[in-house]
């Protein structure tokens, strides 16, 4: 039963990853931009020696981490309310509210943030009405961070909700019976049991941010290039597929390490 899908997975997914990895050791002829199949490490050397590419890789990983942290902080209280406080009816309403943005196109949601943040946008209009100074957030890394945090939030809420819902009420009661205060119960019973859910959600938010190039392109400013933008430019503008493959190997390596850590924290049981 599992055979055919596994085979498809192996061919479509793993084989293309292997092809990506192999082509990252090739080069292109600078004039004709034809791929030259002779093995070399030049692409990786360029990436590690050039400060620009290093900055881009660190910026990508840094913003992905910031987005993950933001979403975890925002999602936890929301999911906690949904799972343990809300009544079944309002819980259903909250579910719809979480999922509703996913019904609209990703691009629409990114452009919405552009409209909110730009110089004459909703945010500055409101600030001006309140007599506050205008904010200059549009087309910056702040805008990229805000947009990502908004767009990926549902992917954090759902696994955290799942983990919180599965905590048996009896454990919380037992903790209380043994004399723990509510905060103590939260910190020593609820939080550790919910942590795998947070880590599971973080896999989504971190991986999705790491691989994106549309939001930095649309919402970003003069220093907002992500790894994905360099890959996109290398393929679509410079026609240098081997270099793109080499740069694309970085998020792959980062994610491999991340998933190993996540597995040790029990994230895969919480999914």
């Amino acid at each position: 039963m599992l055979g055919p899908p596994l085979l498809a997975f192996a061919i479509v997914y793993l084989a293309s990853l292997v092809a990506l990895f192999i082509s990252s050791f090739w080069a292109v002829d600078p004039f004709t931009t034809e791929i030259v199949r002779h093995w070399n490490l030049d692409n990786y050397r360029t990436i590690f020696q050039s400060s620009a590419y290093r900055t881009i890789a660190l910026r990508t990983i840094g913003i992905a981490a910031a987005v993950t942290l933001t979403d975890a902080v925002l999602a936890f209280p929301f999911a906690y309310f949904m799972a343990r406080i809300a009544r079944p009816r309002s819980r259903a309403v909250l579910f719809v509210l979480v999922l509703l943005p996913l019904w609209s196109s990703y691009l629409v949601r990114v452009y919405i943030w552009r409209l909110i943040l730009n110089e004459n946008g909703v945010l500055n209009w409101t600030l001006r009405k309140l007599g506050l100074p205008a904010a200059h957030l549009a087309y910056s890394n702040w805008a990229v961070w805000l947009t990502f945090s908004y767009v990926w939030l549902p992917f954090m809420i759902l696994p955290v909700y799942g983990a919180l819902e599965r905590i048996p009420e009896s454990l919380v009661e037992a903790s209380r019976d043994l004399g723990a205060k509510s905060f103590q119960t939260f910190r020593r019973v609820v939080l550790p049991l919910a942590l795998p859910g947070v880590v599971a959600g973080s896999i989504f938010t971190f991986a999705l941010t790491l691989g994106d190039y549309v939001t930095p392109m649309l919402a970003g400013g003069s220093s907002s290039q992500f790894i994905g933008n360099v890959v996109y430019g290398s393929v679509g503008i410079a026609n240098n597929v081997p270099f793109a493959a080499a740069f694309a190997a970085i998020p792959l390596a980062v994610m491999a390490v991340y998933l190993l850590i996540a597995r040790r924290m029990g994230a895969f049981e919480a999914m």
Partner: peptide, 12 residues
């Protein structure tokens, strides 16, 4: 090629 490289470095 030098122009392209310089531009990429410049944008960072």
């Amino acid at each position: 090629t030098k122009w392209q490289q310089a531009w990429t470095q410049l944008k960072g």
